[in-house]
Design a protein around this nucleic acid. Structure first.
Length: 520
DNA sequence: TTCGTGACTTAGAAAGCCGGAC
DNA sequence: GTCCGGCTTTCTAAGTCACGAA
């Protein structure tokens, strides 16, 4: 089904070419002249010199694999330990020092110039016209070349990701454009796929994966899809008990595959696991429900099941399922018997069987909808658990944030704890003492709330659930009910993304009755 | 029925920027 | 006014899932 009639844009933009700086490395005491590409690689590596990445032997050896290919003999046989990148390190340090040493005015002027350039690029390439309406594009600048920064133990981490050229890129737009040449060259291919909304596409030369440029999340098309996602989650809620009944019934099916599917669905529904597609050898070893291995189950009895594994983005996933259905326990025991720790728990199924089962019960439902539904429900229940109507605004705000935290915990949205976390907490505690000493009770109370939040959100990231999982209408309704400004919870760009919920809140803050009253 | 692929959504880290404390 | 910490935005990796071909 076509989703648009007319669609035009100017293609995408490309990062500036690398400007050689005339740097060289040393190998066996000899200076080695570098090609521009080799220099670019070494420069990118040097820019990472103060991060933990460069300490990683795999990162280093992957870097070397691509780097030595660009070196003349005998340096093309070099090992990481044998090359001397000192000149690059010095150069990077110097660059940083110079930036540091710049005066305010210089910094400002530089930022200004950068912004101006970016805006000019955005004006030309950051927009499209979709069915007669101008929309913003999301990532309209092609990815620059660089070192591949895969997460966790990704086997390709540190490898060179080559530059993308216009020739590599396919554009999707309407039939009024048959070919396109810009300051960046001519685009490799033009297609007119009315059923897709991608703007541009290329194959990442390193990973072989497709990369896409999309309409911005503020565009009507993205917003309507976003809304549909939450509508779908609502539907799951309406038939959840029915769905759960069916899952439990199938737990004791005679067919093993059906018992596997039901067991997986149980886990997805009860503990919020992702479904877990099959992964390739050249990707990080992470799992979801269908790809769980025996070794990921740390405890299994009538009282509890404990899980411990690496999920998406190699984030550690540790949860306990208390009072599990006895049939599930029986199934898992059965699936585990006679297997080694590294063996897959579920043999006969994958995400497609799971989704076929689910969409057979409710049309259009798939595994990931459970996470959306439960995260939203978590927030809804939390917000409903206490009457905040007469509380101070600040209390309302913190209460809302804790609801958000509950969803983040449910989704397992972790973050690495910032280096400065301990210090910044200490500073806050100091301030709290000061306020107390000076009897500034209000400030003290405020600081106490801030400290509590900082502590409880230590290892969690609230943004991901707010952006992707929590139906914004839930917060909107609650805010309206208790009298809190919705924009206290949503950043500018999230307000734009969710303008389908509160169109009037987005752009203008006029004509609120309270404003008129406030002006005697 | 399986498998690969393409389109689309979700994810945490890093960069960038901004506003409040001094 | 300045500085700096934290919040927001950007970036792109890493998932999900439907579909078509074999």
């Amino acid at each position: 089904m076509p989703v648009w009639k007319t669609f035009t844009h100017n293609g995408i933009a490309f990062p500036d070419p690398y400007v050689p700086k005339g740097l060289s490395i040393r190998y066996m005491g000899q200076e080695v002249r570098l090609s521009p590409l080799a220099e670019e690689m070494a420069y990118q590596f040097a820019k990472k010199k103060d991060t933990p990445y460069v300490q990683d032997p795999v990162f280093r050896s992957n870097f070397m694999k691509y780097f030595v290919e660009q070196l003349p003999p005998p340096a093309n046989k070099a090992k990481f330990e044998e090359i001397d990148l000192a000149q690059f390190y010095r150069f990077v340090d110097k660059e940083r020092a110079e930036k540091e040493a710049m005066s305010k005015e210089e910094k400002k002027a530089l930022a200004e110039a950068r912004k101006e350039k970016r805006e000019a690029l955005r004006a030309k390439y950051g927009k499209a016209v979709l069915d007669g309406k101008e929309i913003d594009l999301a990532n309209y600048l092609a990815e620059p070349p660089g070192l591949f920064m895969g997460r966790g133990q990704h086997p390709l981490r540190g490898s060179w990701k080559p530059r993308v050229t216009a020739q590599d890129v396919t554009l999707n737009l309407d039939e009024s454009v048959k070919e396109l040449t810009t300051e960046f060259g001519s685009f490799g291919e033009i297609v007119h796929d009315h059923e897709s909304i991608w703007v541009a596409r290329w194959i990442d030369k390193l990973t072989g994966k497709e990369k896409y440029v999309w309409p911005h999340e503020s565009s009507d098309i993205q917003q309507s899809r976003n809304r549909e996602k939450y509508e779908k989650a609502k539907r799951i809620g309406e038939s959840l008990s029915e769905l759960q009944k069916e899952i439990r019934r199938k737990l004791s099916s005679k067919k093993r595959a059906e018992r596997e599917v039901a067991s997986v669905c149980y886990l997805i529904d009860e503990v919020g696991m992702r479904v877990g597609d099959e992964k390739d050898e050249d990707e990080a070893d992470t799992v979801g429900a269908t790809t769980l291995r025996v070794e990921h189950i740390k405890r299994l009895d009538d009282r509890a099941i404990e899980f411990d594994f690496l999920g998406k983005d190699s984030v550690r996933w540790v949860k306990t399922l208390s009072a599990p259905d006895p049939t599930l326990v029986k199934n898992l025991r059965d699936f585990m018997t006679g297997k080694k720790p590294g063996d897959q728990l579920f043999e006969d199924i994958g995400s497609s069987q799971v989704n076929a089962f689910l969409s057979g019960i409710i049309d259009g439902i798939s595994a990931k909808v459970f996470r959306t539904y439960h995260a939203t429900k978590t927030v809804e229940d939390y917000l409903g658990s206490k009457n905040m109507k007469n509380a101070p605004d600040l209390d309302k705000l913190y209460f809302a944030k804790y609801a958000n935290l509950a969803a983040a915990i449910y989704c397992n949205h972790k973050r690495t704890i910032p280096k400065t976390w301990e210090d910044s907490l200490k500073k806050k505690e100091q301030k709290l003492e000061e306020y107390r000493a000076k009897k500034r009770e209000q400030m003290a109370a405020k600081m106490q709330m801030e400290i509590d939040l900082v502590k409880r959100t230590k290892e969690y990231n609230l943004n991901t659930s707010l952006k992707n999982y929590i139906d914004p209408r839930v917060y909107k309704e609650w805010c309206d009910k208790v009298g809190l400004d919705w924009s206290k919870l949503y950043s500018k760009s999230l307000q734009r993304k969710f303008s389908w919920v509160a169109p009037e809140d987005g752009d203008d803050e006029e004509e609120a009755p309270s404003v008129k009253k406030a002006r005697p």
